[in-house]
Every structure is written in C-alpha cells, then in structure tokens.
C-alpha cells in the first residue's frame, strides 16, 4: 500500500510586472494505491501545477509532499526512484513521444534505466506491455508519426507502466484525442488501474468523464480545492457555488431534452 500525501502545499510564481501569483494555495489531499481521484477545474485553476509538483518538475513554495511518510528527494538517484514509483501521462501524445525514436525505444528506455527486468528479458517485457495497452506488436519498429493519436497515447501509457509505478498522474490524457476513441483509452486506463491496483490522479476539465472514471472528485478554483467528495455526490449534488456553476455550464443534452418529451431511450 502506497500513500502519497500532499500536505498544505502552496506554490507562488513571480510574474514580472504584476506581482506574485499564488497558483496553489494551501492544498492537502492524499492518494493511495487502488484509489482514483479526479482533479477538475478550468484552465488556470492550478491543476497542472499540482501535477508538476507531484512529479517535482516544479518545487512547492511551502508545504510537504510525502511518499509513505518520507519527503520527496529534490535530486539524485532518490528522486529517480521516486519518479519510478509515481509516473505521469501527459496531455499531448503528439509532443510527448520523440519523433526520432521507434516505439520499441520509448518503452525499452525506462525498462533499462530503471532495471525493471534483466537485460535478456527486456524484449519480452516490451511485448507484454504493448499487449497490456492492446497495441499490435507490429507497431514496435514504427515511429510515432506512423501511429494515430490514440495509438500514441497507448504507447505513452505503456511507457508510464514500464517502471511498474504504484501511482499514476494523468494530466488530461484524452482531451487531445478524437472523441470516438477517448472512451476506449479511458476504459483502458480504468482496466489497468484495477489490474495493477494503481492509484490514479485524473486531471481534467471534463466533469462527465471525471464522474465516471473516478471514485472521488476534487474541484479546484483559483488554487484552492473548493469541494471534494465521492464522484456522484459532487456532480449530482454539488454544494459549492463554483461547482454548481461548472456543472450548469457543461453541455448536458440529457437535461436539455428531458423537459421536451417524457420517455426517451437513446439507444
């Protein structure tokens, strides 16, 4: 059981000419293996700053980030070990893969660097990982440009899983994909999460998928978490005015057409 504690974390950015910006303001939460939490909010609310602090791409101004009670090391091999346990899937699969390298290279690299399996098993492991993300082994010697967006994001997920992390930070993992494949990729993430008992922080602006993907939802507004709770409660019975505002702004055809004809069945 792994627990990541985010305890009273704040992040202040210096903005030239207009003073300081408090991007994250005294935020606390914890993420445990097996748990899925969605972090929702509009752009500029501080969601991605939290992701960056979790992976230590940015350092918090104050507060602590603890993995199983220990502070995240700021550098050196210990930081590498931390990043092996807490992995990130980025938003843009067109930018997060290196165009010069094959799919094999992308997935092999963490396997070799983190010495996940003995050298002679690396190739088998790459195939196993591709199978887990349901990609055909034929893609192995291709380069990213030969793959569709959905396939690329599967490669990015396979790469994140290669080091056998315990926690996964997924920052808008499907928002750049075509709509008809988004659910497929999210379903895949949900399956993998269950199989490996991963803890997943799902960062998104999409309330509908947040509700369906995660156990819990945290709503962020101007650096502060304004509401949190079980996913259905937060969406179906929002307490904070900001959550209500977000909800009523999201397109909801079910509600839109509900008044017009009583009984309906979409399928």
């Amino acid at each position: 059981m792994t627990t990541l504690d985010f305890s009273h974390v704040s992040k202040r950015y210096h903005v030239r000419g207009s003073g300081d910006l408090l991007a994250v303001d005294d935020v606390s939460f914890s993420l445990t293996s097996g748990q899925t939490i969605a972090l929702v909010g509009q752009s500029g609310s501080g969601k991605s700053t939290i992701a960056k602090i979790l992976t230590q791409l940015e350092h918090q101004t104050s507060g602590e980030v603890l993995l199983d009670g220990e502070a995240i090391p700021r550098r050196g091999p210990a930081l590498r070990r931390y990043r092996q346990r807490v992995r990130m899937v980025f938003q843009d699969p067109f930018a997060s893969l290196n165009p010069y390298h094959t799919i094999r290279h992308h997935i092999e690299r963490p396997l070799r660097l983190d010495k996940v399996v003995p050298k002679h098993e690396v190739d088998d492991e790459v195939h196993r990982l591709l199978e887990r993300v349901r990609l055909d082994a034929a893609v192995i010697d291709r380069r990213p440009h030969e793959l569709s967006g959905g396939q690329r994001q599967r490669v990015a997920i396979a790469r994140a899983l290669a080091s056998r992390p315990e926690l996964l930070i997924a920052d808008e993992p499907v928002s750049m994909l075509d709509v008809s494949i988004r659910l497929g990729v999210l379903n895949l993430l949900a399956d993998l999460q269950r199989q490996s008992n991963l803890g997943v922080l799902y960062i998104t602006h999409d309330l509908a998928t947040a509700r369906h993907f995660s156990d819990e939802i945290m709503v962020m507004h101007r650096g502060v978490i304004v509401e949190r709770g079980p996913a259905d409660d937060v969406i179906l019975d929002p307490q904070h005015p900001y959550t209500r505002e977000l909800r009523s702004a999201s397109p909801d055809p079910d509600k839109h057409f509900a008044g017009r004809s009583g009984m309906d069945a979409r399928s």
Binding site: D191, R194, A208, H212, F213, L236, R247, D252
Partner: peptide, 16 residues
C-alpha cells in the same frame, strides 16, 4: 462517446 454528465454510465463501464 460522451458519457452523460448526470445520467447513467452508458458505454463507460469501469473495469469493462
């Protein structure tokens, strides 16, 4: 492809 915000889970079934 779009899960309903307030309705049933539709196509999106966790662990399917």
């Amino acid at each position: 492809s779009f899960p309903s915000l307030t309705g049933d889970r539709g196509d999106f079934v966790r662990g399917a």
